[in-house]
Measured scan of single mutants.
Amino acid sequence: LVRYRTISKIPQITLNFVDLKGDPFLASPTSDREIIAPKIKERTHNVTEKVTQVLSLGADVLPEYKLQAPRIHRWTILHYSPFKAVWDWLILLLVIYTAVFTPYSAAFLLKETEEGPPATECGYACQPLAVVDLIVDIMFIVDILINFRTTYVNANEEVVSHPGRIAVHYFKGWFLIDMVAAIPFDLLIFGSGSEELIGLLKTARLLRLVRVARKLDRYSEYGAAVLFLLMCTFALIAHWLACIWYAIGNMEQPHMDSRIGWLHNLGDQIGKPYNSSGLGGPSIKDKYVTALYFTFSSLTSVGFGNVSPNTNSEKIFSICVMLIGSLMYASIFGNVSAIIQRLYSGTARYHTQMLRVREFIRFHQIPNPLRQRLEEYFQHAWSYTNGIDMNAVLKGFPECLQADICLHLNRSLLQHCKPFRGATKGCLRALAMKFKTTHAPPGDTLVHAGDLLTALYFISRGSIEILRGDVVVAILGKNDIFGEPLNLYARPGKSNGDVRALTYCDLHKIHR
């Protein structure tokens, strides 16, 4: 019993810090008490220290592992850092350059016999395009090294910054494609005289377009951006097909006994025919423009016929181009109408809503002055909100995010209106959640004399007048207030005048 009563005193000691020596009952000389009392004092002292730490809000209350900052290894790049964003855009520009100039170089340097010394005699450094290609190869190699040090988000939505895990993730992902696209074939085969082989191998750079397509997928929600990307894709495919079309004609031209190829026909049409040795002929500019003209006309199913396939190889390629053109029509131009419709969806919704308003007016036989006010209010409210119901949009977000959005939407009023000066951010967040926005066209009466005042109004834009009878008592403008002081009276009061809008007004109100 003594032991039980001794232990039962522990909660009292913990909360009230009572010393055991003052209790005459606990001072009985028993061996059990002498053993338990020192333990009680020690526990009391420890609990006292913990309570003191909690009340003082000291940093040592938290466990040590929670006080440590997340460790980022040296030379690790955050995937959302500004440097990584700028670097990704730079790589994107280099990939676009590669997609345009690599097929052009591979096709127009394929057994090209233009006048001038061969590239091997001039030297590697004197070729501007080769120098640019070398810079692109170096940048792609540097990009691989950067990807080995860039964080990523795993399946659990955690940012991984450990170098080993980053390397394994990159090896399992895009490393092989990036490595093949970054191989400097110019340096590996330079001086061997195989410019045709170098041009063909350099087309491996186009593998990076797969990554670019995935990154550009984030802009699919913007109709104008999608339309622009589709047109660029169409032009890029036409450019690639033009390079292939020229390569076919250029390879067949020296081996044909009869002059029936499209390059021969082009030379005869523009007065620059090929001679018996295969030299001469149109310039590279004429060849490229004509090839691009043929691919565009074939892809769009126009086909004027002034550039036509004559050999079997050219006919087979033309059939493939027609098939590609039909697929592009289905996948690209078939979506253009939907994209344009999405661009004008706001206008369509406006006309639909206006039609419903006019049908309501016609069905209920609203008189002319009231009908005009109804239409003007709808037009003004639509121009202010673009038909978007803010309350319906915010309803799907958590309250903390709703408060931040409301604070942002009402920031101008909260910053410049005098009653809100000096208020804490928590108070402003709470008030912003209570605001209701209303609009009024010129001549609209917001409050009639004798109406119950259940709200306090803040003028965000425009001006109003307060009338008693036919006498203008006051004219209020931006950041002015009218209405009933909230919670100042037990019952809502009545208006002693009319409140009429002089201009288009936007008002925020808080109800009782």
Rank of each mutant, 00 (worst) to 15 (best):
E64R: 09
Q68F: 13
R71Y: 14
T76I: 13
T76D: 01
T76R: 01
W87S: 01
Y97R: 01
V100F: 01
V100D: 01
F101Q: 07
L110D: 15
E112R: 14
T113D: 05
C126R: 01
L129Q: 08
V136M: 03
V136L: 01
D137E: 15
M139W: 01
V142W: 01
A155N: 11
A155M: 12
N156Q: 13
V160L: 01
A167V: 05
F171W: 04
G173C: 05
I177F: 07
A181Q: 04
I183C: 05
F185N: 04
S194H: 13
S194D: 09
I198R: 10
L200Y: 05
K202V: 01
T203P: 01
L207N: 04
L209G: 05
V210D: 05
R211Q: 09
Y219T: 05
S220H: 09
S220D: 08
G223W: 12
V226P: 06
L227E: 01
L227P: 03
L229Q: 03
L229E: 01
L229M: 09
M231A: 01
C232W: 01
T233G: 14
F234Q: 13
A235R: 01
I237E: 01
H239T: 01
W240T: 01
I244C: 03
A247F: 13
I248S: 01
G249R: 01
E252C: 01
Q253R: 15
S258W: 11
H264Y: 12
H264N: 14
N265F: 04
K272A: 01
P273I: 01
N275A: 01
K287M: 04
Y293C: 08
T295M: 15
T300V: 01
T300H: 08
S301D: 01
S301F: 06
V302K: 01
V307T: 04
S308Y: 04
S313A: 15
Y329Q: 15
Q341S: 10
L343Y: 12
A348D: 03
Q353I: 01
R356M: 14
F360T: 02
I361G: 03
R362Q: 05
F363G: 01
Q365L: 03
I366S: 01
P369F: 03
R373I: 01
R373D: 03
E375P: 01
E375H: 14
F378M: 12
H380F: 10
H380A: 14
H380K: 10
A381P: 03
W382C: 01
W382M: 07
T385V: 03
M390W: 04
N391W: 05
F397K: 01
L401M: 08
Q402T: 03
D404M: 02
L409M: 08
H416P: 01
K425A: 09
G426P: 08
C427Q: 10
A430M: 12
M433K: 09
H439P: 01
P441Q: 06
P442D: 01
G443M: 04
T445D: 03
V447K: 01
